[in-house]
């Protein structure tokens, strides 16, 4: 009995506030836009009995999904989200790996402090960290003042409200997610393996390439997924740092819902985004499982 309560309370909570809402999104994505409150049709009418339910299901269709393929705004937004997420994941890896490597090679007594320095930005408000870049990247911002003063450029660069700013924003905010799993993998790495490789005639670079990188593979994979998955559906970064030309699906969904008030299309956009995300999520899950098995 006690066990039943223990299971039932969180179970029912998640059913009611996670699964049911998602079923509603799915249902509305199959409905049509209507000028009414709520702004979609059909609505389920139980008072009409079975006849009402049957006519409700008869009116559901895939029109919104067909619409997504017809208007090139949507598939362009999906493609550009994918490419922005991929490119920024790659840059984050390139920036994050040397930091994680340096942390793992740092003296033992520094490591807790370095760890805390990586985690601290993660606890700081996401919105504030994105906002901090607005002041740096604007045309009279800190970066342009510096570049002008040094004399690298003659007139201020336009960085804010471009895709470049979006890349910088994603790399900056998700960097701790990349550093931590790679650091965890490198920290566990047995240093004598590298020594053995060097004794056997590997140069330091070859030893790094043939021993260190393959042995930190799980950390790299985990870090990449932890950056890629949230970056794909990102809303705050493209809307604050990106410009009118920055197309990302999270932003499209938001505008579809709040500006156009087209709930069925917004729901269809959400369903497709989730279908795209299923692939990396499943791969990520598998990587984590493999790692857990390897640890045992």
């Amino acid at each position: 009995m006690r066990r039943l309560v223990l299971i039932a309370v969180p179970y029912l909570w998640l059913l009611a506030l996670f699964l049911v809402p998602f079923a509603i999104v799915l249902k509305i994505s199959l409905s049509d836009t209507a000028l009414s409150i709520p702004p979609y049709a059909p609505t389920l009418d139980f008072s009409a009995g079975w006849e009402g339910i049957r006519s409700f299901f008869a009116e559901l269709d895939f029109d919104n999904f067909v619409w997504l393929t017809q208007d090139d705004l949507y598939w362009k937004a999906y493609l550009s989200s994918l490419s922005i997420a991929l490119v920024s994941t790659a840059i984050t890896l390139l920036v994050g790996y040397p930091i994680a490597y340096g942390m793992a090679r740092a003296p033992e007594e520094w490591r807790p402090t370095l760890m805390m320095l990586v985690i601290l930005p993660f606890w700081t408000s996401f919105l504030i960290r994105v906002y901090a870049w607005m002041g740096i990247l604007s045309s009279e911002g800190f970066l342009n003042q510096l570049l002008l003063w040094v004399g690298i450029v003659d007139e201020p660069l336009t960085i804010l409200n471009t895709n470049t700013a979006v890349y910088i924003g994603i790399v900056y905010t998700y960097l701790p997610f990349m550093i931590l799993p790679i650091y965890a993998a490198l920290d566990r790495l047995d240093g004598s393996l590298i020594e053995a490789a060097e004794d056997l005639g590997c140069s330091r670079l070859t030893a790094f390439w043939l021993v260190t990188i393959p042995l930190s593979r799980n950390g790299i994979v985990a870090g990449c997924f932890l950056v890629f998955i949230p970056a794909l559906g990102e809303f705050v970064i493209p809307s604050l740092l990106g410009g009118s030309g920055t197309l990302m699906i999270g932003k499209v969904l938001w505008e579809e819902f709040f500006s156009n008030r087209d709930w069925p299309v917004a729901s269809a956009v959400a369903v497709v985004l989730l279908l795209i995300l299923v692939i990396p999520i499943v791969l990520f899950q598998r990587n984590q499982q493999k790692q857990a098995e390897a640890d045992q």
């Binding site: 990102e234 985004l273 989730l274």
Partner: peptide
Amino acid sequence: LFSGMIYAPLVMPEVITGLSLLLLFIG
């Protein structure tokens, strides 16, 4: 299903979580 519902929100884009909950509350 239970463990799926525990892990799914961690990777769910916020826009989708927000939208689905709003539609529930309105519903």
